[in-house]
Each structure stands twice: as structure tokens, then as C-alpha cells.
Design a protein around this nucleic acid. Sequence first.
DNA 1: AGCCATCGTTTGAACGATCCAAAAAGGCCC
DNA 2: GGGCCTTTTTGGATCGTTCAAACGATGGCT
Lengths: 344, 344
Amino acid sequence: MSGRGGGEAARPSLETVAERAGVSRQTVSNVLNSPQLVRPETIARVRAAIEETGYRPHRAARTLRTRRSHLIAARMHAPVDGINGAVLDSFLHALTSRAEQRDYRVLLYTAEDDAQEIAAYDELLSDFDLDAFVLANTHRNDARTTWLAEHGAPFVTFGRPWGVEASHGWVDVDGAAGVYDATRHLIRRGHRRIAFVGWPEGSGVGDDRRSGWRSACAEENLDVSGLTRSVEDSLATGRAAGAELLNASCAPTAIVCVSDSLALGVWTEITARGLTPGADVAVIGFDDTPTAAVIGMSSVAQPVGDIAEASLDLLTQALDGAPGGSAAAKQLLLPPSLVVRASS
Amino acid sequence: MSGRGGGEAARPSLETVAERAGVSRQTVSNVLNSPQLVRPETIARVRAAIEETGYRPHRAARTLRTRRSHLIAARMHAPVDGINGAVLDSFLHALTSRAEQRDYRVLLYTAEDDAQEIAAYDELLSDFDLDAFVLANTHRNDARTTWLAEHGAPFVTFGRPWGVEASHGWVDVDGAAGVYDATRHLIRRGHRRIAFVGWPEGSGVGDDRRSGWRSACAEENLDVSGLTRSVEDSLATGRAAGAELLNASCAPTAIVCVSDSLALGVWTEITARGLTPGADVAVIGFDDTPTAAVIGMSSVAQPVGDIAEASLDLLTQALDGAPGGSAAAKQLLLPPSLVVRASS
DNA sequence: AGCCATCGTTTGAACGATCCAAAAAGGCCC
DNA sequence: GGGCCTTTTTGGATCGTTCAAACGATGGCT
């Protein structure tokens, strides 16, 4: 059966190793998957045979039998206009490298909207036996989580299930705490009039972050009247909001923003007035994008590595642990950290 | 064999469909993979059965038999300090979405250096039966392409094989043409003293781009003496180079940069002097990063979509086409396009 | 009529792992 | 030495697909 004509070395399989070690296939498999079932001396002999033959298990064969691919799906998001998206990229990188350590791999997919994304789930699940899904950018009435839950597919979301009481595993960053820290930092530096440029009311993330600013100011009895703006996320709107604030009768000396895009807008307005960010007016953004780093703007950084790690913890718990909902915590809120640069 | 107890619908397989259509497994398989072998009326019957059962082929089983995973590996690059990396991200997105259209999926891996990357290839090839690899950031004496070629793994590089005469497929962007266009654009706008801020000599990409500036200036007999700088890629060095140029006795009225990082440095220096980019001194960057877009800086954009498309063309040609090197062109140089914004 | 191609289809055997049931080996007691 | 239990190992079946060869039917040709 083995060795056709001459020297072509065929890929070693369990069979090959078994022959060499003088045992059966199953014993070799046990050595790899359930060593406690095998006598130590047999293990040693098999291990040696594995070494000599250079055997490596074949994933497709394993998947076919076990219906587990050791693949995790993550969405590749379309590059957005602004400077956002950078967070998702580094999250994806962290997820990939940490998944590798756990013997999982990340498979990408794209989608334009929720419906397409659900179609992608369907295909990935039935064609590729995907083990789990990682979702980002959760929003109100998210059809995706509902679908996945109904189909019994393990998943985690990076982002809280806003609006609904959901029982699935999620990992998120405490945006309120991040903005709170940023505001406290400014207060320590002596600022008394601290403004906040945020998004329009209604977005879970935006409202949450704004609340951090509000509570930090409240703690110190700082007057916040007229010191907040709500605009769509872009440089232009951020710049306009900054201009409005700086033109006011009692202009702020520091401005905290809900995103780096808006902060960059404020930054642009400051420099356009011949002022220096930090020295004249402090600015702090959110997400610590590469742009912020490169221009030296303070920003609240999300701990993408920890988020990835925690997400995988939840997933592997669900995959390898007791089936049917384990007892361990399935929700996790991680603290961000303020990266202080010249602008504050 | 089928129908255990009651209502649990098992996943339909070829067998299921075959029974329903009253044919054999193989015929169903042929309908899907080699329809020309099957009689039209049989095809219709089988197609109907597929429809009714909701059959979908199972990838792992196919992979096991054919040794083809329909998976393409791409490296997830570590987030870089600067504002670069954005190009690779959008390339990856383009690659993913276009691969899906060809029934391929993108699998991620990470690596810190070339050695680790080669180790990743090894694992992906033998454990997962990966079909092909897409490499970016090729450099001189790239050990990765050598390894892949030796092991007979299909691959394409986004980037020319600098320094060596390699025969593998690659797709790259004509950087010289991009900078040439940018320079021509400035000349049309009336600029006569146009500077270039590039990287130190020796990098293939950098030297290539610089040559575009040189030839555009030469065409118009513009004096370029003292109008070029060679610095490492960062905002700070770019700013310093910009300062030097603007301080010179005969300062340039326009500055073309080899990257957006450097261009952003120059931009920072311009605004710090109370000048306006575009109106006072023109600036053009390279790569059209989100940052450039957001601040309104002109930049040379790489056609990531086309690059992804071309890369996949080359790969599928090698995978599905004639084995052993086809006759079609295996190298492709695509033209970038200048995105004109307020800064030029 | 008989032979040989051709076409469309079926059959059995792989691919490489895991699951399952049952046999063999070892240990202990009477 | 036989009976019984536990630990270790074995052989066969299985997952869903494709490959290679066999098969029967059809038709043209001599």
C-alpha cells in the first residue's frame, strides 16, 4: 500500500505513524487527544514515531468527522471615510495572533449590511463548519445576534447589546470611565471649563461616553452649561463645533471629544487660529488612532489586546467547556487608558 | 440508514440528493462539477432535488479528497506607528470581498519576521491545505518568496521583487508614474520650484517614486538642485525636512512627498508657520491614507481594488489553469491616481 | 448480424481523522 | 487455575466528497 515506486515521500498519516510505532491508529490518536488513556511507555514510543515521520494531523479530515473547523470568523470592515476603523484593525490583528496561540485561525468575510452578514454566517456555518463568530459594532435591534442565537452558533460581540437585555457573551470597553479619566486628567492640570464634543443623542456608545464627562465635572461642581455639542462624526463637523465653543463668551480651555475624528476637527480649528493644542487649548480624543499618535494628540485608548483575549476566553469556554451555557461570567467591561501626549 | 427516529432533519449530503433524484452520488457530483458529462434532463432532475433538499456541498470533505481548501492566506500586519498600514488594510478588504466572488475565502495569519512567516506557511500548507498565499511588503532578498517557490506553493506578491530577477507572479503600483503625475499636476498649476521629500537611497519603492519627480522636472527643465531630501519615514523627520526646504534661500512653492507620513510632517510645518497648505505652499503625499482624506491633503492613491483583482486573477490562473506555469502575463504594473484636494 | 466506440451512469475505493464497541492484556482474589 | 474486574489496545464503521474503473445502452460501421 505504501511506497509506490521509489523516493516520493507521501504525507505521513496516523496509519504511517502507527505502523512505525507498532500500534494501531487509534492509539496514536489517543496519544494526541487523550494521553491519559495510554500507558506512558506506549506514549513515548508513539511520540518518537511522530517525531521521526514528521507527522502532522490533517485538519480537513478532523473537521469532516468532528464538525469542528477550528476556525473563527471575523468581519473585515469596509475602510471608512474618517480615521475610524483603525481600532477594528488592531483588534483584528490582536484576535488573529491570540487565536493562533489557542490553535484557532481567523477567517475573514465581508458584508455591506446586516442581511448580507447573516447570509455570510449561513454559508460559513454550513459550508465551512465555522466554530464561532466575532461581531463588532453592535447596535440597537441587532438582527445578527438574534440569528446566531437562534441557530445555536457560538459568538461573542465586541460591544454591548445596546437597548436589549441579551444573554450572549460580550466584551466591551467602559467608554464612560475613559472619558471620565480624561476629564479628571484635565481637571488635575487646572482646567475648569472643559467642553465635550459628542455625537447626537441616541447612540449607546456616544451617550455612554458623554456621561463620563458629565459625572467628572459634576464631582468638582464645574459649570457645564453651554459646554457640550452634538454632531455627526467627521472632521468638518468637529471643527465647526470647536469654532462655536471657542467663540463663546466664556470659551473652554479644554475640549474632550467622543472620537478622534471630532478631536482632529477641533485640533484643526485650534491651529487655524494660530493657537497651539495643549499650550493654549487642550484636546483629547477617543480611540488613540494612528493619526492621533502621529500628530501628538492625547486620546483614550481601547485595550484591543485584552478585548481579543477576553473574547477568545468566552468563545473557547463555550466551545470546549460544558455545552449549554456555563456558569462563568459572560459579560466583561474593560477599562480603557488615557494616552497623554502634547495636546493636554 | 436515514431517518433515525423522528423529525430531526440531518444535513443533506450527496447521498440524500441522489436518492431523491433517483440517481447515484457521482451523478449529483457531476451535475455540480462537470455538468457537460450529464444529460440535460438528468441535470434538471438533480437540480430540483438539490433545491428541495437544500443541499450544500461540504468543504471539509471536498478538501480531504482534493487537497484544495479554497482558502487563501494573507498576513495581518501589526498596526504600525505611523499612518501607514492603511493601504494594506484596504487591500485586505478588497482581497476578501473579491475572493468571495470567486468562491475563495481569506484566512489570516500573523508573523513578527520572515522566519515566523515561513513557519506559518509551513503549518498552513500542511495542516490546512491552503491554496495560495498573498504577500505584501516585498523587500530585497526576500526569503519568503524563495521558500514558497521551492515548496511549490502558489503565491502572488503585492510589490515587485526588488533587486532580483524573479519569475513569480506579482502586482505592483507604478510609483514613479504616480509621483510623475503629481509633479506634472503642480507644474500645470504654475509651480516652478517643486521639492521632493523621500526616503534614504536604497529602498526600491522610495527610489522608484523619486525618479518620477526627477523625470517630470527634467521634462520641463526645472532646476532641482537642493530641492530633495532623504529622511526616514515619520512625521517628525518630514517636518524637519519641510522646515529645511522652506528656510532655503530659494524655497520651493510645492513639495511632493514619498509618503503621507512625511507629507503630514511637511503639512504640520507649513501650518505652524501660519501658512495655508495649498494656498501658500502646495503639498502632495502618497498612499491617500484616511488621514490625508480627513485633513484635505492631496495624495497619490493606489488602486487597491484593482490590485486585489489582479492578484486573484494571477492566483486563480495558477490554481485552476494549466499546471506548470502558464503563458499569460504574470507581472502587472498598475497606474495609481492622484487625488486632488485643497493642498495642491 | 456482429464488433467496436461513445456516451451516460453507476460502483467501489480512496482521502485521514474520530467514534464506538468489543477484544486482549494485566491484576487480584479465591 | 479459573473467574472477575480494570486498563489498554484494536478493528471496523463513519463523516461527505472525488477518483478511477466498470458498466449497460445506443448507434454506426463493416
